Amino acid sequence: MIQVKVFDQEHEKDLEYDMNRFLERLDENKLVDIKYNVAAMPEDDEEEQIYCFSAMVIYRA
């Protein structure tokens, strides 16, 4: 069966940490693909931006 695990963080290092912890427990032969995305939105005051770093790991269960 194919399954997915979705990760979402405001900082890329947090995303990296979470994904590495998950991938440590996943057999390499079960990994199918990893999809990565970054979104940026202006903060309410529009002087700063909010970032959303997300990834989806597709794997065989």
Score class of each variant (00 low, 15 high):
residue 17 Y to N: 08
residue 17 Y to T: 11
residue 17 Y to H: 10
residue 17 Y to W: 08
residue 17 Y to A: 10
residue 18 D to I: 05
residue 18 D to K: 10
residue 18 D to P: 01
residue 20 N to A: 10
residue 20 N to S: 11
residue 20 N to E: 08
residue 21 R to N: 13
residue 21 R to A: 13
residue 21 R to T: 13
residue 22 F to G: 03
residue 22 F to M: 04
residue 22 F to A: 05
residue 22 F to K: 05
residue 23 L to G: 03
residue 23 L to W: 04
residue 24 E to A: 11
residue 25 R to S: 14
residue 25 R to Y: 11
residue 25 R to D: 13
residue 26 L to S: 03
residue 26 L to R: 05
residue 27 D to N: 14
residue 27 D to V: 09
residue 28 E to R: 13
residue 28 E to Q: 12
residue 28 E to N: 12
residue 28 E to P: 15
residue 28 E to L: 10
residue 28 E to K: 13
residue 29 N to L: 10
residue 29 N to E: 14
residue 29 N to A: 13
residue 29 N to Y: 10
residue 29 N to T: 13
residue 29 N to W: 09
residue 30 K to L: 09
residue 30 K to S: 09
residue 31 L to I: 06
residue 31 L to R: 05
residue 32 V to N: 00
residue 32 V to Q: 01
residue 32 V to W: 01
residue 32 V to D: 02
residue 32 V to I: 12
residue 32 V to K: 06
residue 32 V to Y: 02
residue 33 D to N: 07
residue 33 D to I: 06
residue 33 D to L: 02
residue 33 D to A: 12
residue 33 D to M: 03
residue 33 D to T: 04
residue 34 I to P: 00
residue 35 K to Y: 11
residue 35 K to H: 11
residue 35 K to S: 11
residue 36 Y to M: 07
residue 37 N to G: 08
residue 37 N to D: 09
residue 37 N to P: 02
residue 38 V to K: 12
residue 39 A to M: 12
residue 39 A to C: 07
residue 39 A to G: 08
residue 40 A to F: 07
residue 40 A to L: 08
residue 40 A to T: 09
residue 40 A to M: 11
residue 41 M to P: 00
residue 41 M to Q: 14
residue 42 P to C: 02
residue 42 P to K: 01
residue 42 P to T: 01
residue 43 E to P: 02
residue 43 E to V: 08
residue 43 E to C: 07
residue 43 E to G: 07
residue 44 D to Q: 06
residue 44 D to V: 08
residue 45 D to N: 03
residue 45 D to G: 01
residue 46 E to G: 01
residue 46 E to A: 06
residue 46 E to D: 01
residue 47 E to N: 04
residue 47 E to W: 05
residue 47 E to H: 04
residue 47 E to L: 07
residue 48 E to Y: 15
residue 48 E to N: 15
residue 48 E to D: 10
residue 49 Q to R: 15
residue 49 Q to Y: 15
residue 49 Q to W: 15
residue 50 I to N: 15
residue 50 I to D: 08
residue 51 Y to Q: 06
residue 51 Y to T: 10
residue 51 Y to M: 09
